[in-house]
Design a protein around this nucleic acid. Sequence first.
DNA 1: TGGCAATAGATTACACGACATATATGTCAT
DNA 2: ATGACATATATGTCGTGTAATCTATTGCCA
Lengths: 151, 151
Amino acid sequence: MRPAEELRYLILAAQREGNRLLGQALRPLGITPSQAEVIRVLQQHGPLTLNGLGELLVCESGNSPSRLVDRLVTLGLVRRDVAANDRRHIDLSLTEEGSARVRQITEIEERLYESIDAAAEGRELGEILAFLRAFVGGLPAGQAVARRTHR
Amino acid sequence: MRPAEELRYLILAAQREGNRLLGQALRPLGITPSQAEVIRVLQQHGPLTLNGLGELLVCESGNSPSRLVDRLVTLGLVRRDVAANDRRHIDLSLTEEGSARVRQITEIEERLYESIDAAAEGRELGEILAFLRAFVGGLPAGQAVARRTHR
DNA sequence: TGGCAATAGATTACACGACATATATGTCAT
DNA sequence: ATGACATATATGTCGTGTAATCTATTGCCA
């Protein structure tokens, strides 16, 4: 199997297993990995419109995350208000309850990053980051990562 | 943003964008990336039982791919026969029509691998492969990759 | 000002992806 | 031989992912 093919499947495998681990860790909080990403982005960059949120999400990049936000509103974690000046826009922000989960989410993510660092033990992550940035640069999901890292 | 966090999101971004590109390229064939993986695995390793197939798939690793196979049977690309000796098993194999698509799938995958190689230009893929193998080794999706590469 | 294009979101449709549970078949101990 | 257990697959449910289409609102210009 050529390296590019193995790499393709290893990236798929890493994404799936990482998401599965994160999902299991988040389950006691009653939220999914995608929902946790929204909460973190709103905490760090909010308030945002739906489009603004979409440009910062890696999951759902290129799509409008209205369904994802719907569930968070239903869960009482996100507030969705129609913008006063332009009624086509909505203003998204965390509710009290949403803010209250940020700490737990951060701790769970921290454990994921520790397991990533463990697998990287003695390796140069810079090379890997550079390759992946080159592959996704210019594409929506890659731009979302760039927007999140550059500030 | 710490490197492990950026890496996490870059892996997610790479998987999403790769899958989106592949999906668009496969669309004229009327199949999805996951379905293409099944067809390739059956071509290279078939005939297989459902469990045997599941152990070789990176998508749907850990799950039983019965619904994925269902759709391929409906499309007329895969044959599903109850095993003669043990009626709990099923024998999965490609139909004529399924075999006929292998060439086109291979060409489309080839173009994806070329774009991966382009992003890797002048970089050492070995480091990246080693890191990802370490991260997913032991987990179902990682074992599926290992089973596919070791032969 | 009246209407048309542009913009922001919402909705629909289909296929996963993950987890839990159910059903059918075979195996084995007694 | 029978009943408990194990195995292989199927099904149900919920939440994404992706693309396409619909609706509401605003801006613009003839």
